[in-house]
Nucleic acid binder design. Structure first.
Length: 283
DNA sequence: CTTCAGACCTGGTGGC
DNA sequence: TGCCACCAGGTCTGAA
């Protein structure tokens, strides 16, 4: 489900609901998601206070004082659901349990946060806050695409000797963090770059142009609350609506939307995943 | 080292 | 309606 914009959307909802609150309990409805959840996680988390909610790549990190942090990944189908809170801070409806609610976090003020994940490709871990960026799953992740260190010089250096298709390179989280199948397809279409082109065979001028297209599509998607295809929901339960803005993703057989292009969007499979592009205007 | 198929898991869709 | 094949916002693992 979630790429950077979806996770960022969830992050914002979570932050608004739990920042500054005390975590009073964690209910594990099952012992594992993709991997076992540390059985001592509830004991380590209980009684702490949320001092920061952040996103790193597609991971959510909840910094709990005094020393621990929760690390969550939503996998393909993960959702975070939060009770609605009215303007006076009161919790509106009593929260209903749903199928695949695997973890329930309870906070002061009666706020409940549910981690629902049908496919269970998600993960939940706890680590000392000082060790979070060294966590085995986070250690090798590349720069944030919306940050300054993701620039043409960096990307050029990183792709210079790569013979892999640019589509696969951009999905590699060690090269750039947070991109997934939708936004890579969309960014390459905007940049007019063929997804099959070898990453090392793209001129620095074109890489230079690709970067703002990646940033733009991500920012626009965040603005729209992400893309809701099957599973993604904002924490309030509302849908994201960036899917209405797709130019290539899931548009096989439809006309290319490039000004003056009469091409048709094609679907191919690259390293086991669907790629959508226009062979006419993406070179 | 790089690259890629396979694995993990559930649910929705479309064809017959 | 039922059954089945195929598809899905991810990413780790192991093999070549």
């Amino acid at each position: 489900m979630p790429e950077l914009p979806e996770v960022e959307t969830v992050k914002s909802g979570l932050e608004a609901a739990i920042l500054g609150r005390r975590l009073t309990d964690v209910d594990l409805q099952r012992p594992d998601l993709r991997w076992p959840i540390p059985p001592d996680l509830p004991d380590r988390a209980r009684g702490t206070k949320v001092v920061q909610v952040r996103r790193r790549s597609k991971y959510l990190i909840i910094n709990l004082e005094p020393v621990e942090s929760l690390i969550l990944h939503l996998g393909m189908s993960g959702r975070i659901r939060i009770d609605k809170i009215d303007i006076s801070g009161a919790v509106l409806p009593a929260s209903q349990s749903e199928k695949h609610d695997h973890v329930v976090f309870k906070f002061s003020g009666g706020v409940e946060v549910r981690f629902n994940d049908a496919r269970r490709f998600g993960m939940l871990d706890i680590a000392k806050t000082v060790d979070v960026d060294d966590h085995p799953l986070l250690r090798h992740i590349g720069p944030e695409p919306l940050g300054n260190s993701f620039n043409a010089t960096y990307l050029g250096d990183r792709l210079e000797s790569s013979r892999t298709p640019i589509k696969a390179a951009l999905l590699d989280q060690r090269i750039v963090a947070g991109l997934g199948n939708i936004y890579v397809n969309e960014a390459l279409w905007r940049a007019g770059i063929s997804p099959t082109r070898k990453a090392g065979r793209i001129s620095s001028r074109r890489l230079d142009q690709l970067i703002p297209h990646i940033r733009d599509v991500l920012r626009e998607a965040i603005q729209a609350g992400g893309s809701s295809l099957r599973d993604h929901r904002q924490t309030s339960g509302e849908l994201g609506y960036f899917q209405h803005t797709f130019r290539v993703y899931d548009r096989e057989g439809s006309p290319c939307r490039t000004e003056g292009c009469d091409g048709v969007i094609r679907r191919i499979v690259q390293s086991g995943r669907s790629t959508f592009y226009c062979a006419k205007c993406q070179r």
